[in-house]
């Protein structure tokens, strides 16, 4: 560019070369991006596949540093934590989404709520961990599954609220007017017409949020803590797959490292399936908007 502005005329050859150079650089950048993806995924599969077998999925962890054993408690704990987070996050998130799309319009309060939602999406998840630590872990004097699930649920709320608002807004006004015209009360219009019409999108938002919290580690360090056993109570510390990966990755044993790769592979695979479903259902949503 500086070259171009200094010289009054730019030769055709130079322009052609400059284009080739520029596009070449973008190509290199793309190869770097894809290379990062493939080296991470490739290494994960290469190292992790050897660790995964039936015992790995159904057994408890072996004694420290010994071979064998599995991550069954972590998998179970992950399911429990995600379930608790959905109980917290889904109704609150969808409720806020309904409010923003169906009731609020452009009032000042609605805009305040929107700013709050969008701000909270960006708040680091560890902050939610601090919050739950002080309101639940410290008063009850124990780390617990409930605390972990609550922290994850709070992280879900703004994500679900925003996608719900977005997809409800895509539902044509005529559907609401048709409902109101036959005398249906507003709540029936929302729950029997608008929500079903936007079902695919709302589910997409849910999957997105679950995929996001299933990979969260930081808030769980402050709330669920993790342990070595099957969960026995919702009010005791509980293990989770990312906590297990963290522990094994930091440990000194090669066995642990290999199991960390195995667990990471299972986690990525699970999240990738979620993303695939997401992609399929987004296609539906695009169809809806047209």
């Amino acid at each position: 560019m500086p070259m171009a502005s200094k010289r009054k005329t730019v030769s055709y050859t130079w322009r052609k070369w400059r284009g080739a150079l520029g596009f070449g650089l973008t190509g290199v950048a793309t190869l770097i991006s894809l290379g990062a993806l493939f080296s991470i995924l490739g290494y994960l599969i290469h190292q992790g596949i050897g660790a995964i077998n039936w015992n790995f999925i159904v057994r408890e962890p072996a004694a420290v540093g010994e071979a064998g054993g599995g991550i069954a408690p972590s998998l179970l704990g992950t399911l429990i934590l995600v379930a608790i987070s959905m109980v917290v996050g889904m109704p609150l998130g969808i409720g806020v989404g309904i409010y923003l799309s169906e009731m609020a319009g452009d009032t000042r309060f609605a805009n305040l709520a929107r700013v709050a939602i969008n701000t909270f999406i960006g708040v680091p998840s560890i902050i939610m961990g601090i919050f739950v630590y002080f309101i639940l872990v410290k008063p009850t004097n124990t780390f617990s599954a409930v605390a972990g699930g609550l922290a994850l649920g709070i992280i879900m709320i703004p994500i679900i609220a925003r996608t719900t608002e977005d997809v409800l807004r895509l539902v044509p006004k005529s559907i609401r007017e048709a409902g109101l015209a036959i005398g249906a009360p507003k709540w029936r219009v929302t729950f029997d017409l608008v929500l079903p019409a936007a079902r695919a999108g709302v589910i997409t938002g849910g999957i997105l949020a679950v995929a996001r919290v299933a990979g969260e580690t930081a808030p769980l360090i402050l709330t669920a803590l993790g342990n070595e056993y099957y969960p026995t109570s919702l009010f005791k510390p509980i293990d989770e797959i990312t906590l297990r990966i963290l522990k094994y990755a930091r440990g000194p044993y090669d066995v642990w490292h290999q199991q960390a790769y195995g667990a990471a592979l299972i986690l990525v695979f699970g999240v990738a399936i979620g993303s695939l479903l997401l992609r399929l259902s987004t296609r539906d949503r695009d169809a809806l908007s047209r």
């Binding site: 190509g27 993806l37 299933a214 999240v271």
Partner: peptide
């Protein structure tokens, strides 16, 4: 958007989006 042929755009975009679905603890592990 500008260099790749149309049929390659969506798959490459999707692959790079996949990076966003890898949980941060896995990046940490790597």
């Amino acid at each position: 958007t500008e260099l790749l042929p149309r049929w390659l755009q969506a798959p490459v975009t999707y692959l790079i989006e996949l990076l966003a679905f890898i949980p941060s603890v896995v990046y940490g592990l790597f």
